[in-house]
Simulated assay, not measured.
Amino acid sequence: MKQAAINIKNKRATFDYELVETFTAGIVLTGTEIKSIRLGKASLVDTYCFFERGELWVRNMHIAEYFYGTYNNHSARRDRKLLLNRNELRKLSRLTKETGFTIIPIRLFINEKGLAKIVIAVARGKKQYDKRQSLKEKEDKRSMDRMFRK
């Protein structure tokens, strides 16, 4: 019996940020955390990544407590370490030292081997007028689709 594919997205990311470059990273998780992710009980709202002592961490990622987890249960919003190779970490560190850039998680998924992976992106924050332009383009595309369907 094949389980449904887990694909948790950060929908605000593309609206609030202009994505420059993306990377796929592994996550260090406990047993109850991976079980909650497999049930789809995770959220990437308001998450961001930061460097601490040369390691990349994700902060504010919400993974709900596992229902059947007893005293072994995890805290829902703890910092989690991301696994990248040294060259990728060096490149990310260099890119984020430039002003205006940040690292944000875009998507959380489970790969074919059953491991939880997270897609992160180096992003630049959009200005208010850029957000309005994005909304206008989205609305124009929607109206064009409606016209062609009729």
Score class of each variant (00 low, 15 high):
K2Y: 09
K2Q: 08
K2H: 07
Q3V: 12
Q3K: 15
I6M: 06
I6T: 08
N7E: 14
N7K: 13
I8A: 01
I8E: 08
N10S: 03
R12D: 13
D16Q: 09
Y17E: 03
Y17N: 08
Y17D: 03
E18T: 11
E18C: 10
E18G: 09
L19E: 01
L19Q: 04
V20H: 10
V20S: 11
E21S: 06
T22R: 07
T22D: 10
F23K: 08
G26R: 02
T32V: 07
T32E: 07
T32L: 07
E33W: 07
E33C: 01
I34L: 02
S36D: 00
S36Y: 05
R38M: 07
R38I: 01
G40D: 03
K41G: 04
A42S: 06
S43R: 07
L44G: 00
V45C: 06
D46I: 06
Y48K: 12
F50R: 07
F51P: 05
R53P: 05
E55L: 11
W57Q: 01
W57H: 10
R59E: 12
N60A: 07
I63Q: 02
E65R: 12
E65A: 12
Y68C: 00
Y68I: 01
Y68N: 09
Y71R: 15
Y71M: 14
S75T: 15
A76P: 09
L83P: 00
L84A: 06
N87H: 13
E88D: 15
K91F: 06
R94T: 13
T96Q: 06
K97I: 08
K97W: 00
E98W: 01
T99N: 13
T99D: 13
G100T: 01
F101S: 00
F101N: 10
T102Q: 14
T102S: 14
T102D: 13
P105I: 02
L108Q: 01
L108A: 00
I110F: 00
I110V: 14
N111W: 00
E112R: 14
K113Y: 01
G114T: 02
G114E: 04
L115H: 03
A116C: 07
A116I: 03
A116S: 09
A123P: 11
R124S: 02
R124L: 05
G125S: 11
G125H: 09
K127H: 05
K127W: 03
K127V: 06
Q128R: 13
Q128I: 14
R132P: 00
L135E: 07
K136R: 12
K136L: 14
K136W: 01
K138F: 01
K138V: 06
E139M: 15
E139G: 04
K141H: 06
R142A: 11
R142V: 02
S143F: 04
M144G: 09
M144Q: 13
D145V: 06
D145C: 08
R146I: 09
F148Y: 14
K150H: 12
